[in-house]
């Protein structure tokens, strides 16, 4: 059975109304259309859809349950990937670069004190501007590459990851404000600043890798 364009549109509308995330929508839509090809010609379009949803997904109500389970799995997979991207900077061969960059940063901070304003500016860049830029790039590419503005199951996870480093910046500033003056503190704690810069840089790099990883599959399908 080959559905007409109007029938496909009505199926799309139904699935858009039932499902929240584009990932589950795409997978279930493809499954239903693939199954439609094997439905007998005599069956009406509505009956064919109902048969597939009932037999393959356990009914319309189960679609939402499947979507929730899929979302949880996608979030878990995303977080695992992020953790893998972070830890790779502490394993060979990237560990060599991490150590080299850390030693250089420490040397620079301890020999040439760039001052509180310069360090604060670098911290703002690493904890706010870079994560925000990656977040905005992800939103832009969702619309540009996927031609959709529908929600992704990974949106919330990405929002939380992008907003994470800002908390570190706030905590650090509150701590410094309560212990000493900014100029004095930044001048006398090069090792702590080095560690903070290291953590923030690795975090941003891992976030960028997570973002590119999500669109890697899209590039693959754009090529086909």
């Amino acid at each position: 059975m080959k559905p007409t364009e109007a029938q496909k549109l009505s199926l799309q509308t139904y699935l858009h109304d039932t499902l929240s995330y584009r990932e589950t929508y795409e997978e279930i839509y493809d499954h239903i259309l693939s199954a439609m090809e094997f439905q007998p010609e005599g069956v009406s379009f509505e009956d064919a859809i109902n048969n597939i949803i009932r037999n393959d997904f356990g009914g319309a109500k189960n679609l939402v349950k499947i979507e929730t389970e899929s979302k949880n799995a996608m979030v878990k997979e995303g977080l695992n990937k992020f953790l893998r991207f972070v830890t790779q900077y502490f394993k060979l061969p990237l560990l060599l670069y991490t150590v080299l960059a850390t030693v250089q940063t420490y040397y620079f901070l301890s020999k040439i004190n760039p001052g509180a304003i310069a360090i604060e500016a670098i911290l703002v860049l690493l904890t706010m501007l870079v994560p925000c830029a990656i977040h905005l790039l992800r939103l832009y590419n969702t619309g540009y590459l996927l031609s959709t503005t529908r929600k992704s199951a990974r949106d919330k996870m990405f929002d939380n990851l992008a907003a994470g480093p800002i908390r570190l910046l706030l905590l650090l500033n509150v701590w410094i404000a309560n212990t000493s003056t900014f100029n004095e503190w930044f001048g006398s704690h090069p090792y702590i600043i080095t560690m903070v810069l290291l953590v923030c840089t690795v975090y941003d790099l891992a976030l960028y890798q997570l973002y590119t990883d999500e669109f890697k599959t899209v590039t693959e399908h754009k090529r086909v």
Binding site: I28, D56, I66, S70, E77, N80
Partner: peptide, 17 residues
């Protein structure tokens, strides 16, 4: 394979790497 068993299983295997 019915009752939506396949997709949760696939996504779990994906989440587990």
């Amino acid at each position: 394979l019915t009752e939506g068993a396949l997709y949760p299983a696939l996504h779990k295997l994906e989440a587990d790497g």
